[in-house]
Design a binder for these strands. Structure first.
Length: 403
RNA sequence: GCCGGAGUCGUGUAGCGGCAAUCACAGGAGACUGUAAAUCUCCCCUCUUUCGAGUUCGUAGGUUCGAGUCCUACCUCCGGUA
């Protein structure tokens, strides 16, 4: 195969931007919409690749920043690439390190804020581990304090060493707390020029490294919650020679669907769109309805490790004492390995006893839950029942909290 | 029997005349959205939704403006010794 990526659209939903399709990569295909679990450091925390496969995951996403620091992208290249290294034969994505621009910078020690109304939600200069200028980002390693400068070129070199099928342009992830003028500057001086530089370096590397399977590059749209900036960014990047697009950045939960629509109305229809860092069921519905094709997110895994499991009726902490004597599966509707073999009481006990297995079993469940949700949404688009499915699912999902 | 030591929140502790009283564990609840997350936050004597009120450091007295803290007696436990 000469092209790094092909995207075929199969179904479209009347009255919305939702579609189903197939992404074809050198390491296999992804039926979209799809949820892509995150294996930041070339490992899905707490579970094996076989267990990840059992969740129905079609692909996995790794992170350039983390793998650059350890074990190093040259080492992964020597291993034969990320697929061989981590024994994951399916399609892979690699994030550019753009998220760390925010999470180690202004967002350091903060929770991602999708409301914008937490007043003190920006990290002070001296406490940060990342500093931005128009050329790139200086990082202070969270592992040993050493300094590293990320540029679009370095990010692409790292991502090519890693060898993921789909890579992302290095971008600046802003927050809802940055003002409008900062958001404009961020687009014009960094995210957009960096996208051009990422693309140029990517093309050079794909040509230079012809002994490896060709890699795809997605440009990442920013613009926070401003319609004009989102449309402008989508138009600008959409006209470039990317294989697909990342829908990134500061999103306001309240109107996340609308923000996604602004971008997708401007983007070329025939290229895939990846929603970066989103996985709450209501957000997934809103994004798919407005044209998102794939998703990645650490949340299902993280909340699982911390004891929160998804059910049809909402996300619930198994650590609650009510599950101590509950000898039924935590989610009776679930076909995952965990729910097929273990009871709520057992999971409750494992968390209580701080057994590693608690995290493994709950991660398997949550990843399966979100993967299956998106699979079901895909099926509902194909057979035209999307809106009914969405209404029923969300009514159930939020029925407990409203009560 | 005598000598010495100790009794503080479910447990183990801090406390050195001045705030229901430290810390840890246990217990209860919550949070988590391109992973510095096996993390973090809150509650945890009683009553109260809150503000707040009440009762407390083995028991009973005493000294003091004020006692978990000092004194006396008693009770219990742990060492040592007959």
């Amino acid at each position: 195969m000469t092209k790094p990526l092909e995207f075929t659209i199969h179904h479209r939903l009347d009255g919305a931007l939702a579609r189903t399709g197939t992404i074809t990569t050198p390491h296999g295909t992804i039926e979209t919409p799809a949820f892509i679990p995150v294996a930041t450091r070339a490992a899905m925390r707490g579970i094996t690749t076989e267990q990840l496969t059992s969740t129905g995951a079609q692909a996995a996403l790794v992170n350039a920043y983390h793998l650059y620091l350890r074990p190093g992208h040259e080492l992964i290249d020597r291993a034969g690439g990320i697929h061989t290294f981590m024994n994951w034969q399916g399609p892979t994505f690699s994030d550019s390190g753009g998220f760390q621009v925010m999470s180690l910078g202004v967002g350091f020690k903060k929770v991602v804020d999708m409301t914008g109304d937490r007043a003190e939600n920006v990290t002070k200069k001296k406490d940060k581990l990342a500093w931005i200028d128009d050329d790139g980002v200086r990082f202070k390693s969270h592992l040993d304090g050493s300094m590293h400068t990320f540029t679009p070129e370095l990010s692409m070199q790292i991502q090519h060493g890693i060898g993921a099928d789909i890579t992302f342009a290095f971008d600046e992830l802003t927050t809802l707390h940055h003002d409008y003028y900062y958001q404009i500057e961020s687009l014009d001086k960094r995210t957009h020029p960096w996208a051009e530089r990422s693309l140029a370096e990517h093309k050079r590397l794909n040509a230079e490294r012809s002994h490896r399977p060709p890699q795809a590059l997605f440009g990442v749209i920013q613009g926070a919650d401003h319609e004009d900036l989102r449309r402008k960014s989508a138009k600008f990047l959409g006209s470039m020679d990317f294989d697909g697009f990342g829908l990134g950045g500061a999103l306001r939960k309240e109107n996340i669907g609308e923000i996604v629509r602004w971008m997708n109305e401007e983007l070329p229809d025939d290229k895939p769109r990846h929603m970066l860092g989103i996985s709450e069921p209501d957000d997934i519905f809103a994004c798919i309805e407005n044209g998102a094709d794939t998703f990645d997110c650490v949340s299902p895994a993280r909340v699982a490790r911390n004891g929160a499991l998804y059910t049809r009726y909402g996300r619930v902490n198994v650590t609650r004492s009510q599950y101590k004597d509950d000898f039924t599966p935590f989610d009776a509707d679930c076909d995952c390995y965990t729910c097929q073999h273990y009871t709520s009481a057992y999971l409750h006990h494992l968390f209580n006893a701080d057994e590693l297995l608690s995290k493994t079993l709950s991660t398997i469940h949550n990843e399966r839950f979100i993967v299956r949700l998106v699979d079901d949404i895909r099926a509902s688009i194909a057979d035209g029942t999307f809106f009914a499915f969405k209404q029923r699912f969300l009514a159930d999902y939020y029925s407990k909290k409203q009560a």
